[in-house]
Amino acid sequence: MFDDRSPIYRQIADQIKDDVLRGVLAADEQVMSTNQYAAYYRINPATAAKAFQQLVDEGVIYKRRGVGMFVTAGAQARLRDGRRERFFAEVLEPMAAEARALGIAAADIVARIHQLIPGDSR
């Protein structure tokens, strides 16, 4: 489930953010409790708690005392904005570097992107 390399709490936080981004977890929907998470993924509860604390700090989820944790309204849009900003630096630039090394023409890449994302003719 988790790789043993990067901090597990960050991997958990990233997974939950992915779920929010993709709409698997909707606004105001309850997320699993720290303890459920720990038992399910066989990890120390403190590690799970650290992930949830990070998500609270980042405003992705909020606590309702005695009830549990819920997805913040607007979290999906904010995560999307953040990822969009990083998309060019983290996804496109390495791809362009790889394409240059392989001698793939920009026009071929663009043509393929149009195939992959049809209906977007801008």
């Binding site: 043993d4 390399r5 990067s6 901090p7 597990i8 709490y9 960050r10 120390n44 590690t47 650290k50």
Partner: peptide, 11 residues
């Protein structure tokens, strides 16, 4: 040799 939170060690 050390006493550390596991995630800190990983980092």
């Amino acid at each position: 040799l050390l006493q550390s939170d596991l995630d800190e060690l990983r980092e």
